[in-house]
Amino acid sequence: MKQVLSFEKPIIELKEKIKELKGMAEENNLTLDDEINTMEQRLKRLEQEIYDHLSIWDQIQIARHPERPTSLDYIEQLFTDFIELHGDRLYRDDPAIITGIAKYKEVPVTVVAQQRGKNTKENLHRNFASPHPEGYRKAIRQMKLAEKFNRPIICFIDTKGAHPGKGAEERGQGEAIARNLMEMAHLTVPIIAVVIGEGGSGGALGIGLADHVHMLENATYSVISPEGAASILWKDATKAEEAAKSLKITAKDLKALGIIDEIIPEVKGGAHRDFDMQVAYLDTYIEKSFNYLTTIDRLTLPDLRWEKYKKIGEITE
């Protein structure tokens, strides 16, 4: 069964009514074209009304939608000759992060992505896209190879956060993320990062330090989950919507704050509603960044990256 979000209910209901009416017309050989037309007009207006006025909570539900396209969906459509490469050469392969090489517009690239599952079984295998240290270590291993062979790096971010677990702590979750940030700082190849779903704190940033950072329109990127913030601040997880507003986690807010570069438009109602169209939107923005960044002298990239991040954080003196 398809998952229905609460704000989508009126649309789904109207759609079902139209379907019913059409079926009735056909069955009884009636002409109900006028009625059907009126209802279809109403559906259009309703969709416009609802999708243009999504609350922040609606957006969060879209970003977490089980049918929302995952990194692998985009990778299959955007790249050719993708070869997935596994393992950190130290401990194990972390299925929460996918890495590999491929071609983008005929140019070899390295792809690094957090991967959600689409059902419970897949999610258990992927650990709900929450990486362990070995995931970050696999990612940086591939990024260093990218530098060696002068391949641009494209990262897809989609995680609730780095895994909070015993083994993760024992193997240095903090160190793994920190090392990635330090190594990514000086890579002499372009890095493009796109937040496609949820950008969960340090776990997202661990593969997200980039020359260009883009976000899908309904994606979120936050230092803490709205539920987590609400329970710490007000000891009340039900105030998550209020926390979400205060934390400024939407693409629009983060563009205004200078944290991200571009907002990639989404299909009305969310990326899951028209995947092909969404791929095209994504492609346009990645291509633009790709074409721009590949013209820059490789050796100046780390300095430009430093200038970009150095500016973030308003202070007074």
């Binding site: 330090m182 000086h186 340090g202 936050s222 601040l233 150095k310 954080g313």
Partner: peptide, 20 residues
């Protein structure tokens, strides 16, 4: 938490400064 994503980006900034 009260400085949201600006705080998260300080992780990047400080790590990059360590790198330099």
């Amino acid at each position: 938490m009260q400085e949201g994503m600006i705080s998260l980006m300080q992780m990047a900034k400080t790590s990059m400064a360590v790198d330099r």
